Simulated assay, not measured.
Amino acid sequence: MSDDRTAADDPYGPWGPAEEDELADLDEFLRVSAELTGFDVPELRATGMADEHHRTTLAHRVRDEHALVHLWYVGAWPGEAPSSARAHDHGLVWRTFRASPPGAAAPGHGSWAAAPAGAAPFGGSPSEGAPFGGSPSEGAPFGGEQR
């Protein structure tokens, strides 16, 4: 290939061969990942996914910053399934939202029957006949009348 090639012609994408070699080192991979994701290296290591995400990244010859961020937040390389269920469950997206991935952690039998901690019941004070208090029409879906 000639030296006057454009960025679109570069098979390495935004990371040239020198940067690709640097990412072969786990510590450098984590440093770059921390810079891109906004999480520091200890936080990335705490996900338990550093080695798996590093292997996933090295398996892709063409890399870009967006793909690396996507991998950390969602647990999958763009356009692919997550490398494991664990990768999805430990994605940074859940830490960002301070939530648990659906179905990843059992909340306990009957936990759905009570309002979340700190949440006011529908309609204020509890009353009989309504799921979380208030009158039956106040507990209706979308604030409408029960049908």
Results as ranks from 00 to 15, higher is better:
residue 55 R to Q: 07
residue 141 P to K: 06
residue 37 T to M: 00
residue 95 R to L: 01
residue 82 P to Q: 03
residue 29 F to V: 06
residue 7 A to W: 07
residue 73 Y to N: 03
residue 37 T to V: 04
residue 50 A to R: 11
residue 88 H to K: 11
residue 80 E to D: 14
residue 56 T to Y: 01
residue 131 P to R: 09
residue 107 P to M: 06
residue 142 F to M: 08
residue 143 G to L: 08
residue 56 T to H: 06
residue 7 A to S: 10
residue 110 G to R: 15
residue 98 R to Q: 10
residue 38 G to Y: 13
residue 43 E to R: 13
residue 49 M to S: 07
residue 43 E to T: 14
residue 22 E to P: 02
residue 94 W to K: 02
residue 142 F to K: 03
residue 129 G to Q: 07
residue 19 E to P: 00
residue 117 A to E: 11
residue 58 L to P: 05
residue 49 M to Q: 12
residue 41 V to T: 13
residue 120 A to V: 07
residue 35 E to Y: 06
residue 106 A to D: 15
residue 140 A to R: 12
residue 103 G to H: 05
residue 1 M to K: 04
residue 99 A to T: 08
residue 135 S to E: 08
residue 48 G to I: 09
residue 3 D to E: 06
residue 140 A to L: 09
residue 103 G to A: 08
residue 140 A to Q: 14
residue 111 S to F: 15
residue 31 R to T: 12
residue 103 G to K: 08
residue 5 R to D: 09
residue 57 T to G: 03
residue 130 A to P: 06
residue 108 G to P: 10
residue 85 A to M: 01
residue 2 S to Y: 13
residue 81 A to G: 04
residue 116 P to M: 08
residue 128 E to R: 08
residue 72 W to K: 02
residue 75 G to C: 00
residue 59 A to F: 06
residue 86 R to G: 03
residue 72 W to Q: 02
residue 114 A to C: 01
residue 131 P to D: 02
residue 100 S to D: 11
residue 56 T to Q: 14
residue 71 L to F: 02
residue 56 T to M: 09
residue 28 E to I: 02
residue 101 P to K: 11
residue 137 S to K: 06
residue 135 S to Y: 04
residue 108 G to H: 07
residue 23 L to W: 14
residue 147 R to W: 11
residue 108 G to E: 10
residue 7 A to M: 05
residue 11 P to A: 09
residue 63 R to N: 10
residue 108 G to W: 04
residue 112 W to V: 14
residue 29 F to P: 05
residue 4 D to M: 13
residue 35 E to N: 01
residue 105 A to C: 08
residue 28 E to R: 05
residue 120 A to S: 05
residue 96 T to M: 10
residue 74 V to C: 00
residue 69 V to Y: 00
residue 47 T to C: 01
residue 35 E to L: 11
residue 45 R to W: 15
residue 60 H to Y: 01
residue 5 R to W: 06
residue 15 W to T: 03
residue 92 L to W: 09
residue 99 A to E: 14
residue 87 A to T: 02
residue 91 G to I: 09
residue 58 L to F: 08
residue 107 P to H: 03
residue 140 A to E: 13
residue 57 T to W: 02
residue 91 G to E: 10
residue 20 E to D: 14
